[in-house]
Amino acid sequence: MLSKRTFTCIVCPNGCTIETVCADGAVKSVTGQKCKRGEEYVTQELIDPRRTIATTVKVHGAPWPLCSVRLNRAIPKKDIFRVMDAINKVELQAPVHIGQVVIANVCGLDSDVIATKELPAKE
């Protein structure tokens, strides 16, 4: 059984339209991508779609109430809201630095939540 699917690649702003053909659970062809990352993306997308997310956490003692955070590795799409719940339980104390690990190995998904903003302690 051949199954065809069309994807819009989300790796970069080119947003290539990529066509895939699968047969008996195996990828037979991937066409339309401008680069190798597109092929990797759809291959991953066919077996286990993954995304990174970006959100904020509360921070105390900083000039601003929030610190932005993101995942440093993609997680399965189905776990996005579970990870949001975990992130929403965290609060930080200033100073916060870019790259600081906010939650290591969040929900056991082999991805860290890291801070993406420099927040000095309020004077």
Binding site: T8, V11, P13, G15
Partner: peptide, 8 residues
């Protein structure tokens, strides 16, 4: 908007 944003 960009196609990738429609998607993701």
């Amino acid at each position: 908007g960009l196609p990738r944003n429609i998607e993701q």
